[in-house]
Amino acid sequence: MTDRRRYPSDLSDARWALVEPTLTAWRQARTARALAFGRPPEHDLRDLLDAILYVDRTGIPWRYLPHDYPPHQTVYAHFARWQRDGVFEQLNGLLRRLVRASEGRDPEPTACIIDSQSVKTSTNAPAATQGVDVGNKIAGRKRNIDTDTIGLLLTVLVTAASVQDSTAGQHLLTAVAADHPTVRKTWADMGYKTAVIEHGATLGIDVEIVRRDPTTRGFVVQPRRWVVERTFGWLMNHRRLARDYEALPARSEAMIHVAMINLMTRRLTNETTPTWRGT
């Protein structure tokens, strides 16, 4: 790590210790190839991850990164490589298991909750990756997520906003069944219709639709589903996620993983997430 002024989004020593082995292993696996081309690693891994966290937390464009971070081209190149190599997903899985174990739970969940969130896009997003969510009257993309029962991310799928929840839900369940075979129960809202329930049955997952009481008026906390709604609230504390700024849906998914990595490392080290609310 270079000697520079620290930003609120930067990793503490304790948080860095949680993710350093994974990133170091990634670099070591590629060092031989880099040396073969005469390009040894030049930048500190911690500085690179700090820069990515800075973008995710503050919402700035890559080229607006402060100059005491590595060059923005280098930071984005590593962000893209880590996304393609599944490093963010690997870290998310590692940290999720640590959080669950620290709270006295089994490392792998047996139940989950699925939901979606439609968000507007920026001009960076190609038109082919966008759509219109007629129900919510939003043109852009849709974030479909699957969390465990304490709100930690299991799976994320970013699609055009026009993609139906029932279609995305089937993809989420397939991914959950493959990556988390212990899951046997899923809660969802009314948007996930018969096709999702039937698909879950073929995977050995019982999908239960949480129905709103028609006699209630105004906002009412829904059983089980409030957990995934809270997760969306956690994500929206990261200004890069207030709108979808990424050109590729896969990079949008990576930004969500980065936000969860930020949240879980703080949770494991009992560090609060600084906000600007009330300041």
Rank of each mutant, 00 (worst) to 15 (best):
Met260Glu: 09
Arg57His: 10
Val132Pro: 01
Val158Pro: 00
Glu20Lys: 15
Thr182Asp: 15
Asp189Asn: 07
Tyr54Cys: 12
Thr275Ile: 09
Leu172Glu: 05
Ile114Val: 15
Thr159Trp: 05
Ala77Asp: 14
Gly140Phe: 05
Arg46Ile: 12
Leu91Ile: 09
Gly86Met: 05
Thr182Pro: 08
Gly104His: 04
Thr123Ser: 14
Pro41Val: 08
Gln90His: 11
Phe37Trp: 04
Pro223Gly: 13
Asn237Cys: 10
Ala161Asp: 03
Asp3Ala: 14
Asp3Asn: 14
Tyr76Pro: 02
Ala168Arg: 01
Met1Val: 14
Leu91Met: 14
His257Arg: 14
Tyr192Cys: 05
Thr123His: 14
His180Tyr: 15
Ala80Lys: 10
Thr123Tyr: 12
Arg4Val: 13
Thr194Gly: 09
Gly86Asp: 05
Pro126Arg: 09
Asn136Phe: 09
Val183Cys: 12
Gln73Ile: 12
Asn144Glu: 07
Thr216Leu: 01
Asp213Phe: 00
Leu53Ala: 08
Asp133Trp: 06
Gly151Ile: 06
Thr194Met: 07
Met190His: 06
Thr159Tyr: 08
Tyr7Ile: 00
Val75Lys: 04
Pro66Asn: 07
Gly131Thr: 10
Arg81Gly: 05
Val87Phe: 03
His78Cys: 10
Arg266Asp: 00
Val220Tyr: 00
Gly278Tyr: 00
Thr149His: 12
Glu208Phe: 01
Arg84Glu: 15
Gly233Glu: 10
